Amino acid sequence: MTIAIRIALCLLLALAPLDAWAQSDDKAMMIVSDDAEMAAAIEKARSGLDEFLALSDAPLPGTDKFKLKVMIVDGNATEHFWVIPFKRTDTGLVGILANEPEIVRNVVLGQNIEFTRDDISDWGYTKNGHQVGSFTVCVMLKKMSKEEADNLRSAYGFDC
């Protein structure tokens, strides 16, 4: 993320409640907490969660790298992290935090965390080298410079 974008995002932090959205390359992007596009992406992810979990339980040929994005709250701060790998438990889900926290301080990279379906804000997996899901990432790509977005698309197989 460019310095100008970081400065602008820091200024926004003082003006509106923000959530930090962890990206695939372990950087965070600040998004206003009432961003309509992000809310729609979360809703889309949650509406397909049952199908995603069923597929992650019995992956089809050519599918791998299943991941969940989970919301972590620490006081008034909220940050979203990829959890890779994850598994279901009797009471919810458990997995390993795959991003370095930038806002919250109650978790650390590599920590094993327990969470519920209500904490899930996105999901994704790779099918034949292309990302499926990752709806929140597609929103973030629109808010990045063309160069940064193109680099992430190329490196991780995003089609959005």
Rank of each mutant, 00 (worst) to 15 (best):
M1K: 09
T2N: 07
T2Q: 05
T2A: 03
T2E: 05
T2M: 01
T2S: 11
I7L: 13
A8S: 12
L9H: 11
L12A: 11
A14T: 11
A14D: 02
A16R: 15
P17Y: 00
W21F: 05
W21I: 10
A22G: 15
Q23W: 04
Q23P: 03
Q23C: 10
S24A: 10
M30K: 11
I31M: 06
V32L: 07
S33R: 14
M38P: 01
A39M: 05
I42E: 12
I42A: 15
R46T: 03
R46K: 12
S47P: 00
G48H: 10
E51K: 14
E51A: 15
L53T: 05
A54P: 00
S56F: 03
A58L: 05
A58T: 12
P59E: 00
P59L: 01
P61S: 07
K65Q: 11
L68A: 13
K69H: 04
M71Y: 07
A77P: 00
H80A: 14
F81G: 15
W82M: 04
P85Q: 05
P85I: 05
F86P: 08
K87A: 15
R88D: 06
D90N: 14
D90K: 13
T91V: 13
L93N: 09
A98H: 14
A98V: 11
N99V: 07
E100L: 08
P101S: 08
E102K: 08
I103P: 00
R105L: 04
V107D: 03
V107H: 11
L109Q: 09
Q111F: 06
E114M: 02
F115D: 03
T116S: 14
T116V: 09
R117H: 10
D118V: 08
D118M: 05
D119I: 06
I120E: 04
W123D: 02
W123F: 15
N128M: 10
N128G: 07
N128L: 10
Q131C: 13
Q131A: 15
V132C: 13
G133E: 05
S134E: 07
T136I: 01
V137H: 13
V137Y: 03
C138Q: 08
V139H: 02
L141M: 01
M144Y: 09
S145I: 00
S145G: 05
K146P: 02
E147R: 12
E148S: 15
A149F: 10
A155D: 14
Y156W: 09
F158Q: 00
C160Y: 02
